[in-house]
Design a binder for these strands. Sequence first.
DNA 1: CCTCTGACCGACA
DNA 2: ATGTCGGCCAGAG
Length: 111
Amino acid sequence: MKDNSGFFQRVYEVCRKIPEGRVTSYGAIAKYLGAARSARMVGWAMNSSRNFEDVPAHRVVNRNGMLTGKSHFGGSDAMQQLLESEGVSVKDLQIQNFQKYFWDPMKEISE
DNA sequence: CCTCTGACCGACA
DNA sequence: ATGTCGGCCAGAG
């Protein structure tokens, strides 16, 4: 529904819709975009997202609730700190009650 | 222009 | 249950 023909732009859009204190997985976003097998690119899109501050990549983790991309946040626990700051419990790069904080774009975003 | 890799996920042995 | 492999799109060399 946008002239953004790029796959990345769609990922950014969904990420921006992620509510504060909520997290989602790469696969969920990819699935929402209709490319569950392209989950790898979702994470990669996030890498490029560092050019766009509007994209909270720290709210995006892998399917296990693990902060796999934490290493890309400057090498520090910035990602974990951000999540905890939003009320998300994180232990050793792993989100506690991940299912509870999980935010599914497919369910929340119904267009 | 061609090749390879990348913050993943799911299937198969 | 654990380990390995393939797959998708896009950008960099």
